[in-house]
Design a protein around this nucleic acid. Structure first.
Lengths: 336, 336
DNA sequence: CTGAAAGCGCTTACAG
DNA sequence: CTGAAAGCGCTTACAG
């Protein structure tokens, strides 16, 4: 392995000068610079990152914590993370928690060993206190979930409004019994979307019924099963809002399997707008989040903080959008 | 930040002893061990990884290079990687190439800066020589693609046989004009599956026709478009084998859009057996690969090599399996 | 503009 | 079983 001393020797300068040339922010005379560069090329010298990391007390690495990388929503966010990181010479460590609190904690604890310079959380089930504690030691930014009352830097959509608008769309189509299939209720973003559901019903003076709200776990199967429960009600909903697309697709399966039609008998609306929406039949109406962009901006924010740049804002709310496709239609008037 | 010297001072031992206790492989009297441990706990000391990395010349990190993390096939492999890595105290750096050769090369070059201890390639479009060169510097294992004539450690299925069996299934159902929608032909695994297609036709004395083989790029859209080309033939195929599920689903879209039915008019078979297969209608028959297990075993292999353990075998072939669902049926006899 | 020197925080032969 | 000391390969005040 060729080290910096070899380069220094060949270029007849000190290692300090070699280092300066390579980090190219110091003034070095162009003559010596050329000499050094020539030696670097000739020896194919690559600085040893392990050494520079220790010296600079930085790993040039950030950890991305996601609940499930297999979910296209989170893998897109990850791509956003990665593209920014790469651009700035950072690497991203994969922190897939598999939805486990335990693993989420393990990853967060890495900050103490200085294996990463920053942490980006696309999932935050841990108590606020633990997350705050981590953010005391190291830059942390939250991607996709907004934590009320803390000023940890965050990039997310407005999940309350998004939920409300999805349900209002259904109400505008004439529906009044609207089921909700939500993700786990210990996840903030689930709670927010349910809050939106409540708001929409309240605004339209539709009474809220607990049985119409079912908790799933974001999987297709859980959407299927909770939909079955909704269908078993003596007065089943005429429309259903699921807080992710997988559950919505599971719900569609259940509806069809019961011999009913989507959307004629029951309208369905999903969340996230993953590619799957365009592949099922009928194509699924869904609330779209700018997932890649969320990842992109969250990582920009994180790197800014790491570099101690001034942040213009530290809470960014990105726009969502209702993607109309074929799973929602007017509710036939009960008068007919 | 509390360092090892603080612990040493408090426990009244040398830093060497503290280090020995923490790496717990040296003999330390239980009395001093207890004293050290107590100090460690009291001070909440965490060893600085940056320092130990330099000293040990190891980052305890491996790079996982995948073409597209958004693809559920590769994200499952990644999970396999991660689970093993975690188990052995390693971290995995995300190397999504976005199908770009350039980025693949960039990641591989990281080996020279010692930012990772090993490399696991779930994509290998680079010339064999470059990959071999990298494997000279650092442990490398190939996941999912087998490179003929090189003995780089590899975990994969037998893509030739898998392709052959898929096509033979179609032939057994009476099909003789069988279309193939393949991934990019500069990818080894695509070539292997095409080879299997040839073998199946040859074995059954069916002449090979070039127009029946169309090259896509693994996307739904490319499956759709290439299927359109096949349908435009004056004598279109009665069955199609696509080398991944996304393209198969795209092909199904094209078929339906032309007013034809799957499988009654045209049978379709995919590859990878991702969850999507169970969500489209009709449900897609597909060749299943043990993707999580491929990732798992590949990472085990890599870590073994890093630790310089003896490998029993360095080429592992895992079983594939044809998952029969609803997109293939008997070809109606043309005599009738 | 350049060099000599210190030091980042560990770990590991070496000696006892 | 334990400690003193060297050193991993860089970078960065400091001095000139």
């Amino acid at each position: 392995m060729v080290g910096i001393v070899d380069v220094a020797k060949m270029a007849k300068v000190s290692t300090a000068t070699v280092s300066r040339v390579l980090s190219n922010n110091m003034n070095v005379s162009s003559k010596t610079r050329d000499r050094v560069l020539k030696a670097v090329n000739q020896l194919e010298y690559k600085p040893n990152r392990l050494a520079s990391n220790l010296r600079k007390m930085s790993s040039k690495t950030v950890m991305a914590v996601v609940p499930d990388i297999t979910n296209p929503f989170f893998s897109s966010i990850l791509q956003g993370f990665k593209d920014v990181a790469l651009e700035f010479g950072y690497h991203v460590l994969l922190g897939d928690t598999g939805n486990s609190l335990e693993q989420e904690r393990d990853y967060i604890n890495l900050v103490k060993e200085r294996v990463v310079d920053g942490l980006i959380l696309a999932t935050a089930r841990l108590p606020k206190e633990e997350i705050l504690a981590a953010s005391q030691e190291i830059p942390v930014v939250l991607a996709c979930e907004y934590m009320d009352g803390f000023d940890i830097p965050t990039v997310s959509i407005d999940n309350v409004s998004a939920g409300r608008e999805a349900v209002e769309h259904l109400i505008r189509l004439g529906h009044r019994r609207i089921g909700m299939i939500t993700g786990p209720l210990d996840v903030i973003l689930s709670k927010d979307r349910v809050k939106g559901y409540y708001q929409a019903l309240n605004l339209n003076e539709i009474p809220i019924e607990g049985v119409l709200i079912q908790e799933g776990n974001f999987s297709v199967t859980s959407g299927y099963e909770t939909m079955l429960k909704l269908l078993a009600l003596k007065d089943p909903p005429t429309a259903v809002f699921a807080t992710n697309d997988e559950m919505a697709v599971g719900a569609m399966k259940a509806i069809k399997q019961r011999g009913l039609q989507v959307p004629n008998d029951i309208s369905v609306i999903g969340f996230d707008d993953i590619p799957l929406c365009g592949l099922v039949e009928p194509e699924l109406t869904s609330v779209s989040q700018p997932r890649y962009d969320m990842g992109y901006q969250a990582m920009q924010m994180l790197l800014s903080i790491i570099k101690k740049e001034e942040l213009t804002r530290n809470q960014i709310v990105l726009p969502h959008r209702l993607m109309l496709r074929d799973t929602c239609c007017k509710r036939p008037s009960p008068m007919l």
